[in-house]
Simulated scan of single mutants.
Amino acid sequence: MRAPDFWTGDGGGLAPILLSPIAALYASATARRVARPGWHAPVPVICCGNATAGGAGKTSLALDLGQRLANRGVAAHFLTRGYGGTERGPIRVEPGKHDSRAVGDEALLLAAEQPTWVAADRAAGARAAVEAGAQVIVMDDGLQNPTLEKDLSFLTIDGSYGFGNGRVIPAGPLREPVANAAGRARAAVLIGDDETGALAHLPPGMPVLRARTVPGPEAAQLSGQPVFAFCGIGNPRKFFATLAGAGASIAGRASFADHYPYDAGDMRDLMAEADRLRAIPVTTRKDFVRIPPAFRSRVTVVTVTLAWDEAAQLEAMLDPLAGRVPVPA
């Protein structure tokens, strides 16, 4: 689904006001749910969560943390719900066997780097990961899921979107009030500039780690080239801005709902438009795994990684967890 327009702005207008009683019930139900005790895993659990519905950079953060743990010689396994997929798990993702319709697009991105588990029941997924040798579990999403206790949680914030209109679903994009989500996080991770003043809504003294997305080397090859950019992610304008910042000439663009499942008809239309514009079809890595295989050879993928302002502070937060990694028998 696409987020309604009234989810951005100052929270005024008729729709948010009319929906506020339902939002209050939603927030109350979430508060009761997250208060339940969860399973305490025998290995450290790190959660990359957010307060809003949709993307905020959680998967990019999870991938970054997984690499940092790997650099320490720690066997990190990723754990995700597998949004958009049909598998409920727990199941270990096999990129050559599973596709995005089975396990979701984010799980495939994670599994390309390190062992990844899809599980609607996060505790069951964590147990399976531990049995398979996980020394640390990195959760992509799950801040509002109480079934698994977390040792270190990050509140991820998309700097260009912030907390939307500041209201709870369905009156706004928040899964719960910001203060509630922040209260269960060790630090906030701001990705990009704080364009909406989101940091002002965090509790005083909450640590904030700042990062920005950096395009991969393939972006340099698009400098000065006409491109037709398309994506179905939480914040499409971030992708378009990344391409423009890399020097690509955006001849056309198309955006779809987050996790949009492209079919052959969609791709024929997109390729026809790229041909009409005499432009290179370009998309994100997350979108690429949702494209039917027959069309992938025609599409250029631009990847992104995170560059940190406070990398040393982030590493310091990982230090205590790395010290708790169980030694293999």
Rank of each mutant, 00 (worst) to 15 (best):
L63R: 15
P115R: 11
C231L: 09
G11D: 09
H98C: 03
V74Y: 13
T213I: 08
F295C: 04
A132E: 09
M317A: 03
T213Y: 01
R184I: 13
V130G: 01
A322P: 05
R88Y: 04
E195T: 09
Q225C: 06
E176T: 12
V208S: 04
E273N: 14
Y83S: 13
P4K: 11
I91P: 00
S160W: 02
V214Y: 09
R2H: 07
M1G: 01
A124T: 06
T213S: 05
E94T: 09
D64K: 07
A274E: 02
I169E: 00
V214T: 15
R237S: 08
E94K: 10
C47P: 09
E310L: 02
M206G: 07
P90H: 01
G66R: 05
G49E: 13
L61A: 09
H77Q: 07
L69M: 14
P90I: 00
V301F: 07
R278E: 14
R127M: 08
A3F: 04
A182K: 00
E310V: 02
A254S: 12
G245Q: 05
A220Q: 14
D151N: 15
A248G: 03
L18E: 04
A70E: 15
P320T: 07
T300W: 01
G38A: 10
R175Y: 14
P95G: 03
Y260A: 08
L79C: 05
L152A: 10
I169P: 00
R81W: 13
A179W: 03
I17Q: 07
A119G: 09
G142R: 09
G55K: 03
A120Y: 11
L277W: 01
A112Q: 03
R296H: 11
N180Y: 00
T305H: 11
S20M: 05
G205F: 01
A307K: 13
A119Y: 01
A111W: 00
C231R: 05
L61W: 09
P44T: 11
H77N: 06
E113D: 14
L314I: 02
P115K: 13
P328T: 01
A307Q: 15
A112M: 01
A311I: 14
L108N: 05
V138D: 03
G38S: 10
P204N: 12
T242Q: 10
L18F: 00
G197E: 03
R81P: 07
L148R: 13
H259K: 12
D287A: 07
A107N: 09
G252E: 06
A229V: 04
L321H: 04
P16L: 06
V325R: 06
L174V: 12
V93C: 01
A56N: 11
G265Y: 04
L63D: 11
S60A: 15
L202I: 04
W7T: 15
G85I: 05
Q114N: 13
R276T: 12
